[in-house]
Design a protein around this nucleic acid. Structure first.
Lengths: 180, 180
DNA sequence: TCATTCATGTAAGTGGTTACATGATTCA
DNA sequence: TGAATCATGTAACCACTTACATGAATGA
């Protein structure tokens, strides 16, 4: 029912930071938001047309032939604020790792250990990329008003990854003690 | 492309624990797996028919008129093991809270604080339900071979929730210090 | 008897991915 | 000149939710 079009929110928000082409929009999602948000071309381009029709963004010719840069209009800025203020729509959880562990008795302890080791490895690699993002933000980027908010999201990712590592250690130890 | 039908895996796994009706299956998902998995009737009933056609489960009349209890067949047990051993399919992330915080400059610090307070409250309530699940498992339920694996998933939920609370505290403090 | 729970299913719609098609521009 | 990148879009498909329709059994 009157569900918020999350893609519209994401696109308006990104264009609020700076005007962009659809292509650049997707790169921005992957780079800056990649660890907690995703959009594909199949979503972005239709959304850009819908938002243009609605008058929330304006399409202007870009540097290259055929490319278009989109900018927020005043009504778009109002719409963005409106969408931002709506409560986040809860996503039904679908955690394939947990599903497999829940059926761990059928899967067997060794396969479970392997799954957990993989999860720990993934979390560790995430911590590295977060460190990279922090370093990048501290160094090259000039201090913007977005800075403190972006750090909040990076910090959330770090906390989650730390928790995953700690859980993995504990769980491996627990499986080790399991009577065969 | 040859994607694993996650619903099939979930249904086979649950029926491997004990034979059930479609209705009971859904309750089991909500109760035991609710915090990391979800299935709706619109998924479960078609899946049950598909799995029956494939010979992975068997349909037998249940206690009530018109009801059916489904049981794993031998080939179903093999199929379950096969699906369990396939790597979890990564879910594209879609975190509405993080999206809003990323655009926190547009949203404003007060609204951000409220979002974080809500997130902390949610995490705290989750911790309570996990404590309840632990208590329930320790007390009424007899010790099954599934027990240690189920604890793994509860523990994962707890770690994640603790991390969310810690992150929320930090983030609230950070927003407090923000120059207006 | 009447509300609630148990039980099975379908239809419509949504939100999303993937693959495909096309072509300009840049740079080695 | 040719590969990689920039750029826009569509079509097909998929998984999933929600709402709807139906009805038996239970229990207050």
């Amino acid at each position: 029912m009157g569900r918020v079009k999350q893609t519209h929110l994401a696109v308006l928000g990104a264009l609020g930071v700076r005007p962009m082409t659809g292509y650049a929009l997707r790169e921005a999602f992957q780079d800056a938001l990649g660890h907690f948000w995703s959009e594909s071309f199949g979503q972005i381009y239709p959304a850009l047309n819908e938002l243009t029709d609605a008058g929330f963004i304006e399409k202007r010719p870009g540097d290259r032939a055929g490319s278009s840069v989109y900018t927020l209009t005043d009504s778009g800025r109002r719409q963005l604020l409106d969408l931002l203020n709506q409560p986040p729509t809860p996503v039904p959880p679908r955690n394939g790792l947990m599903l497999r562990l829940f059926f761990g008795h059928a899967l067997g302890p060794e396969a479970c250990k392997k799954l957990i080791l993989d999860a720990r490895e993934t979390a560790r690699r995430q911590l590295e990329t977060y460190a990279g993002i922090r370093a990048g933000m501290a160094a090259e980027e000039e201090d913007t008003e977005h800075h403190p908010y972006w750090l909040l999201t990076v910090s959330a990712g770090e906390h989650t990854a730390w928790a995953a590592v700690a859980w993995a250690e504990e769980s491996l130890a627990a499986l080790e003690k399991l009577p065969a």
